[in-house]
Design a protein around this nucleic acid. Structure first.
Length: 503
RNA sequence: CGGGACGUAGCUCAGCUUGGUAGAGCGCUUGCUUUGGGAGCAAGAAGUCGCAGGUUCAAAUCCUGUCGUCCCGACCA
């Protein structure tokens, strides 16, 4: 929930799960409800998603965290393929002369670029940028590859690391080196490029909601928030429990700006040489930060099943000399693994209670308990991570021979439930402001996504930002009747906008 | 980049004010007993006190610098 005493929350409800009264407090992490920042940092470390490294602002993505990234990749990549894209790989190092070709672009990224100046002991004749993004490199290659309208569209994506020299870093949310994917496409017409930009925005929205279980608002960025060099930038924006918005993916219509800078031309059907229209779109491991903050509770992570490295963990209960529960757990888990489920048996020499707490903290969606009583009954106890201890439906007794189907159903249920909870939070913290005082009050207190009719002008947004720290997150077609005035400044409204403070 | 805080065993921290042989709990190792919500007993291992200078007979402790982390702000696709 909100940071205690800070966030104004007019419609606060028991949306995010509180720790159950029967569950003892965790030793490793402070309660999420008490201090979101401290909780967030602790849980990323203690759940072994990441480790800090000897390099400032750069983290190690540990196997459990990488498992989440792999699942994100799998689901997103299959959506890219389904929309006609192919993967490729472009160089990490970008000659300065390429990077500077698009003026707005280089200006926007200049403060964040890391440079390679030496090869061994020799100073380079031209320094090389470590890619902060790859428009320059990919645009240069597209210029070579594209000659005719018959070569278009070009639909390529790459899964890579990028480096941006950041001043303040936080695991997943902002690191100097991070993993992402960047799609880059070239088209014969402005209309096609715009369609592609919106198509991929929709892919991100659908992915965020159905795979990551994170509800988002999709829309257009304001001019001040636009990608340097883009004609228009679109984003999906999620709302974190502290009332700050998190930009979770962007999709850019680059128009002909990069085609002109990098010489991407083609002979069209009418015989004219024309500049192509390009797009780029990206989602980074920041999305995992959104998942962590959105779903986690006082007892740790709650990972949506489709992203969970372990979907179900088996905890055998050993009694005296009886080790048959361990064998049975392995037997059942092997069967599920063969059926394609991601399961693990925790047969370490720890008490069951210790394991329950450990795997809850690490956010595994389902726990399967196999004890002597269960073996007698021919059934296991399956416990859901999305519900509180003792809540109706949190424990299900499932016959061994029905386990696979039941687990598949429960995983679906957990995912849907996490989404429902997050959706309820977003909706209850999306507030319409219809006068300036209310807008300022909501923005200042981080009440959530503040929805207003907006004029769309830079100076108006800048004034709100100066006063409250909030900016537009994204905008959409005006939902009010024509003639409505901007809530922030009183000029005629052009769009509907969400204002919020952001990460 | 500005303001604030922190850095001592794998983890959480005490010790620093007032300089004098490095501490606790948890974890770890071994053994035995345990195991349906973070087990018990016994024995044991484990720290260049972030790093570099300085002051001092003597520095975890005082001073300077530096690196890193956290919080708040600025900046940020």
């Amino acid at each position: 929930m909100e940071e205690a005493g800070r966030a104004f929350s007019p419609n606060r409800g028991p949306v995010m799960s509180q720790s159950a009264p029967l569950s003892p407090p965790l030793k490793e992490i402070p309660p999420k409800s008490a201090d979101l920042s401290a909780w967030y940092t602790a849980v990323t470390l203690k759940a072994e998603l990441i480790s800090y490294s000897p390099v400032r602002g750069c983290v190690v993505l540990r196997p459990y965290g990488f498992g989440m990234w792999e699942n994100l990749q799998k689901h997103l990549d299959e959506r890219f393929k389904a929309t006609g894209h192919e993967n490729a790989y472009f160089p990490l190092l970008i000659p300065e002369s390429l990077l500077v070709k698009e003026a707005e672009h280089v200006e926007g990224f200049a403060p964040e670029v890391a440079w390679v100046t030496h090869g061994g002991a020799e100073r380079l004749a031209e320094r090389l940028a470590i890619r902060p993004t790859s428009e320059a490199m990919i645009g240069t290659m597209y210029a070579q590859w594209i000659e005719s309208y018959r070569d278009l569209p070009v639909l390529i994506n790459q899964w890579v690391n990028v480096v941006r020299w950041e001043k303040a870093t936080r695991p997943f949310l902002r690191t100097m080196e991070f993993l992402w994917q960047e799609g880059h496409t070239a088209h014969a017409s402005a209309r096609e490029a715009r369609e592609e930009t919106l198509r991929m925005l929709e892919v991100y929205r659908e992915f965020a909601e159905n795979v990551a279980a994170v509800p988002v608002y999709a829309g257009a960025k304001s001019a001040s928030e636009r990608f340097p060099g883009a004609v228009e930038t679109f984003s999906i924006e999620a709302l974190m429990p502290d009332g700050k918005a998190l930009q979770s993916a962007t999709s850019h219509d680059l128009g002909q700006n990069f085609a002109k800078a990098y010489g991407i031309t083609f002979a069209d059907a009418d015989g004219q040489i024309k500049h192509a229209y390009t797009t780029s779109w990206g989602m980074s491991w920041r999305m995992l930060g959104a998942v962590i903050m959105t779903h986690g509770d006082d007892r740790g992570l709650r990972i949506p099943p489709k992203l969970a490295p372990v979907e179900a963990v088996f905890v055998p209960i050993v009694k005296g000399e009886r080790r048959d529960t361990v064998a049975k757990a392995h037997e059942l888990a092997d069967g599920l693994r063969a059926a394609g489920l991601r399961v693990r048996v925790d047969d370490r020499d720890q008490s069951p209670g210790w394991k329950f707490t450990e795997w809850e903290m690490r956010g595994v969606p389902l726990r399967v308990e196999i004890g002597p009583k269960d073996i007698e009954a021919g059934a296991a106890v399956v416990v859901r991570r999305d519900m509180r201890k003792g809540e109706d439906g949190s424990r299900t007794v499932v016959a061994f021979d029905r386990l696979e189907g039941a687990i598949r159903e429960l995983l679906e249920a957990v995912g849907a439930s996490l989404y429902r909870q997050a959706r309820a939070f977003l909706e209850s913290h999306t507030l319409r402001a219809r006068d300036r005082e209310t807008l300022v009050e909501y923005c200042t207190s981080r009440a959530g996504m503040i929805d207003i009719p907006w004029c769309g002008r830079d100076e108006c947004e800048a004034r709100v930002k100066g006063q409250t720290g909030a900016t537009t997150r994204n905008t959409r077609a005006l939902e009010e009747p024509p003639g409505t005035h901007c809530v922030a400044c009183g000029e005629p409204a052009k769009v509907s906008a969400y204002f919020a403070q952001s990460y």
